[in-house]
Design a protein around this nucleic acid. Structure first.
Length: 233
DNA sequence: CGCATTTGACCGGCGC
DNA sequence: GCGCCGGTCAAATGCG
């Protein structure tokens, strides 16, 4: 992972081009040079607080238009995409919502609008619980998700947390997405990593859920209390 | 030897 | 109602 040298220099114009590609869910186009944490690029206004719960090192460095985001989240897909691509000018941000994620995006929206997402009836079942039960219970408590697109030759971006791979699947329209779970005991955050079929240099990372702990390598940006982070999602 | 990854099977949801 | 598909599980395998 670390062996990849700074070969992948971030190419802004290329990113702008990539913005034309219709994205799948909510996508933040964030350049990601290997060996660096996510640099702030493009938009200058605001910081998406919600990201901090999931990827602190990412959020601390990633600034973009929160208002743009909150607006976007509430719009229908087509409307949204064109809006962002056309009016945005915010070169690196594209975002839309899919039907699959609609419930999640509602929560994201709530978050961004300052509401607190309702109680913790998102009780988790233990891994050892009956498979069936678990499956059934799982789907109703689907966590909020967001994803972003980066150009990188590393698949698993270093976001400060430790991840364990638990699956990989060939699906339509992407190459084989990999599924990761946070290795922390009580933490159920998952992420999906896939490469864009159209351009294998692009990595789409989808986070789902919120961490209940601070990142494992809390070196530089541990100023965000984990408590606070938890409230954001 | 212990932990992480791989991989095929399985399951539920959703569209037709 | 059925079949497809995405997502997850868990046994097998790999690796340090």
């Amino acid at each position: 992972m670390m062996s990849t040298t700074s070969q992948t220099n971030v190419n802004h114009s290329l990113f702008e081009e990539q913005d034309q590609i219709p994205t799948q869910m909510g996508l933040f186009n964030i350049p990601f040079p290997p060996n660096q944490t996510y640099p702030p690029l493009g938009c200058q206004t605001g910081t998406l607080k919600s990201i901090s719960a999931i990827a602190p090192s990412l959020s601390s460095a990633t600034s973009f238009s929160e208002t743009l985001l909150s607006t976007a989240v509430q719009r229908p897909r087509e409307d949204l995409t064109s809006n962002l691509l056309a009016g945005g000018g915010g070169q690196l941000l594209s975002l839309n919502r899919s039907r699959v994620n609609s419930w999640a995006w509602e929560e994201v929206s709530d978050c961004l609008m300052g509401k607190r997402i309702g109680g913790d009836d998102n009780h988790h079942l233990g891994v050892s619980a009956m498979k069936m039960k678990k499956m059934k219970a799982r789907r109703k408590v689907r966590e909020p998700r967001f994803c972003f697109k980066t150009m990188s030759d590393v698949d698993v971006l270093d976001d400060g947390y430790k991840w364990r791979k638990y699956g990989q699947k060939v699906v339509k329209n992407t190459q084989h997405p990999s599924y990761y779970r946070c290795t922390q005991d009580n933490c159920r955050v998952k992420k999906r990593v896939e490469r864009l079929a159209e351009d294998p240099r692009m990595v789409i990372t989808t986070y789902e859920g919120r961490h209940v702990h601070s990142p494992s390598n809390e070196l530089e940006d541990s100023q965000t209390p984990s408590e606070l982070s938890n409230f954001l999602w």
